[in-house]
């Protein structure tokens, strides 16, 4: 990836302006034309370098709920458990990780009560405890790219 794209990503991580022609404002700061900037953002999205560009909404502030949860899945049952967990539409991401707690997933629900329900339903189906680790405090979300 070239230097300009890195600059674009770093700029866009800081917060996009709210004004009539915001791309023009950002383009000027980077030294690009507005249409060049738009073209580059389009390409970064199309190639999957960027997952998303736009307002990043706070699930909790919108009345929803979000948590990180983990399971100690025995090796011989791992795939079966993954299938059960993934079947819940509320499970957004699920990763296998190298630890005794070897399955880590994010649950996102429209209302907080549903979160507890999903956890209980998973526990009932897999007959194992789900370790619920909702955030108590957030210190940072974002990433600055190396120049």
């Amino acid at each position: 990836m070239d230097h300009i794209n890195k600059q674009i990503i770093n700029m866009l991580q800081k917060g996009f302006p709210i004004c009539d022609s915001p791309y023009q404002v950002v383009a000027e700061q980077i030294g690009l034309t507005e249409s060049d900037l738009l073209e580059r953002i389009k390409l970064l999205l199309e190639t999957g370098v960027l997952s998303r560009f736009g307002p990043l909404y706070h699930a909790e502030q919108m009345g929803g709920a979000l948590t990180l949860a983990a399971i100690k899945a025995p090796k011989q049952r791992f795939d079966q458990i993954a299938k059960i967990v993934n079947n819940f539409p509320e499970v957004a991401h699920n990763y296998e990780r190298n630890h005794e707690l070897n399955m880590w997933f994010v649950i996102a629900t429209d209302v907080p009560e549903r979160l507890t329900q999903v956890i209980e339903e998973i526990e009932k189906k897999i007959e194992l405890p789900v370790y619920n680790m909702p955030k108590i405090n957030e210190y940072f979300v974002g990433l600055k790219l190396e120049a």
């Binding site: 990503i9 800081k14 709210i18 370098v49 560009f53 307002p55 909404y57 502030q61 790219l145």
Partner: peptide, 25 residues
């Protein structure tokens, strides 16, 4: 624009920006 600014102040919007795909970078 007014509504977006106000949702940003209320923290309903974290920020307007990008989510990079770490692996792709």
């Amino acid at each position: 624009m007014q509504r977006l600014s106000s949702m940003q102040k209320q923290k309903i919007i974290r920020r307007i920006g990008v989510v990079p795909n770490h692996y792709r970078l």
